[in-house]
């Protein structure tokens, strides 16, 4: 049973990592740090809604750590980590009050929270409060990309929950 769980989580981590690395090849949409599709979050959302918080968190952390390592951007780790954890927390809370059909909304709030977490980390690390000027545009970006990844995740949950759960 444990071995199965390990394999399943590992496969999902690999999927997330692949998406993450592929997305890196897409040129930046806007020259603003933090504006990106965040496709790898489809996996996090899917995992959270089918497997539960423990597995989802493990997959998320492994993906962030290995993603930073593989992309050679270890300096971005602190931003990814604070964004990832804040968005995970928001999703966890929303999961309690939202139904499976409203999963897309959880993803929107999670994406916005992700960007907020990144800005908070950036402001703390660079000691530059004026970076908050990026908050509105990153919120817009979070809503849009969150909708997209949310819809994809909702689709994945519908189709895969049977496969993943057993």
């Amino acid at each position: 049973m444990n071995l199965k769980r390990l394999c399943r989580d590992a496969v999902l981590t690999a999927v997330a990592l692949t998406i993450f690395i592929v997305e890196l090849q897409i040129p930046d949409l806007l020259p603003i740090p933090g504006v990106k599709l965040g496709l790898a979050n489809i996996v996090t959302v899917t995992a959270l809604f089918t497997l539960g918080p423990v597995d989802a968190l493990a997959i998320l952390l492994c993906r962030i750590l290995l993603g930073s390592l593989f992309s050679g951007n270890m300096m971005a780790l602190v931003y990814s980590l604070s964004g990832g954890l804040l968005s995970f927390l928001v999703m966890l809370l929303l999961k309690k009050i939202l139904t499976a059909k409203q999963l897309w909304a959880a993803s929107v709030f999670a994406a916005v929270a992700h960007n907020l977490g990144q800005i908070l980390a950036a402001v703390a690390v660079t000691a530059t409060p004026s970076l908050f000027i990026y908050l509105p545009i990153l919120t817009v970006s979070g809503v849009v990309t969150g909708l997209f990844t949310g819809a994809a995740a909702q689709f994945a949950v519908k189709r895969l929950s049977g496969v993943l759960k057993n």
Binding site: N73, A122, T128, S130
Partner: peptide, 10 residues
């Protein structure tokens, strides 16, 4: 601002 987050430059 122009930001280089990896190098902490603003």
């Amino acid at each position: 601002p122009i930001v280089c987050l990896p190098h902490r430059l603003v």
